[in-house]
Amino acid sequence: MRALPVGAHGLLLELDTADEVGALHAELLRRATAGTLPPVTEIVPAARTVFLDSLDDPRGFAADLETWDLPQLTAADRPGVEIPVVYDGPDLADVAALWGTTPDEVVRRHAATTFHVAFCGFAPGFGYLTGLPEEWHVPRRATPRTRVPVGAVALAGPYTGVYPRSSPGGWQLIGRTDAVLWDPRRENAALLTPGTRVHFVPRDRARDTETVR
């Protein structure tokens, strides 16, 4: 782990893998809940880093971190959510071509994958979900869409994401959900918070229409 200074009171903790980031983030949250973490204003996990803001003594804290034991996370350590998806996105065929398979097989593989929210960003409640093996990583679209609808389930690079609101976007759209990703009036505004385990559950279009009625 490398501890990089961020101003006078911040630390950027850099790790080698996303799993190590997950383990450190979980331990930081555990200590924050137990009241044994020094006061911080933000704990922001990202792809290979965790950013801590407003530490009284960042150097002392960085030295203390060296003594921490970070247990590997197991699936049971993480809260889980299921997101119903109608897999009818406009880019499903393109993704199938990139994966060298059929759209049905893309759906089967995507729905069989256990994802984790690595971090949030881009928009409130937008989670970057990891879990797809490297050979299924796909590029962003050459031309971003000016409007991606709310609830779109999309792929880019190593990540799967769900658009919490309509916005421009360059990700490959493979489906859509009616799950509410972001509602600031809810006690937990974001459905997907860093560390959450996620499964996508296929819904067929007909049944989806029935439930809506």
């Binding site: 950013f51 949030c120 928009a123 409130p124």
Partner: peptide
């Protein structure tokens, strides 16, 4: 403050 991990 305190919501940066949610993208806020």
């Amino acid at each position: 403050p305190g919501h940066a991990h949610l993208g806020v």
